[in-house]
């Protein structure tokens, strides 16, 4: 399956991006290299008889179906327990926000709060920030 990246002219024909090889399970990073998430799945949209990738899907809800079988059901169950009232739909990062695909998927600098971090936010507010020194980098 071939997926059209943010800039199809970037790669010559025959060297198109492969969803499996270049996108799925690759690390998504901010423009300064800070890890954001993995590409847990891709959102596809059918137009004119072709499939277009429209967004990166993030989080256990997106990952669980790809794990298949008992393992997938387990992850999905844990995800439902941990869900911070988002309502089943995995958070997404629009492909328009993607600047480049290389060793990692790099986002554009202007991309604001992506709201893909419900669990991180919960952990920070309820556990880590309550420990003295959580705001200071040890370097």
């Amino acid at each position: 399956m071939t997926v059209h990246g943010p800039d199809p002219d970037e790669r010559a024909p025959g060297r198109a991006y492969s969803a499996r090889f270049h996108w799925l399970d690759r690390q998504v990073v901010a423009d300064d290299g800070t890890p954001i998430s993995k590409v847990d799945d891709l959102e596809l949209d059918g137009r004119d008889g072709r499939l277009y990738a429209t967004a990166v899907l993030v989080g256990p809800d997106a990952l669980a179906p790809r794990l298949r079988g008992r393992l997938g059901r387990l992850v999905a169950a844990v995800a439902r327990r941990l869900a911070a009232a988002e309502g089943g739909r995995p958070p997404r990062i629009d492909l328009a926000d993607v600047a480049a695909v290389g060793a990692a998927v790099t986002l554009r600098p202007s991309t604001g709060d992506l709201r893909v971090h419900a669990l991180e936010d919960w952990t920070r507010a309820n556990v880590i920030e309550r420990i003295p020194g959580a705001r200071h980098a040890s370097g």
Binding site: Q27, P35, I36, S37, K38, D40, V58, A134, R135, H136
Partner: peptide, 10 residues
């Protein structure tokens, strides 16, 4: 794919 590392603030 989480942010990790001990160099940044916890």
């Amino acid at each position: 794919g989480w942010r990790w590392g001990k160099t940044a603030a916890p």
